[in-house]
Amino acid sequence: MKETITNYIIEHITKQKVSGISEDEDLLGSGLVDSLGMMKLIAFIEKEYNLSIPSKDMTVENFMTIEQILNYIESIK
């Protein structure tokens, strides 16, 4: 799951040239993911893992790093 999400960000979202993203990197603060990118990422996660993410859960606490995203997905599965 970690690899799938990391690869999706690298291949489809970020406009920067990066080879990898560490689990605790601030995706939003580093500019890897912008607002539109975040919407794309959330749509991807919903489709890929057959989830429905309520808008109230789209918070810094749940989506700032890949680690937080993984924890969040586990928590709502």
Binding site: D26, L28, G29, V33, M38, T59
Partner: peptide, 14 residues
């Protein structure tokens, strides 16, 4: 306001 909050309106509002 930190960058992350600006990209997630739910957190910005909080």
């Amino acid at each position: 306001v930190p960058d992350a909050h600006l990209r997630l309106p739910v957190s910005l509002s909080a």
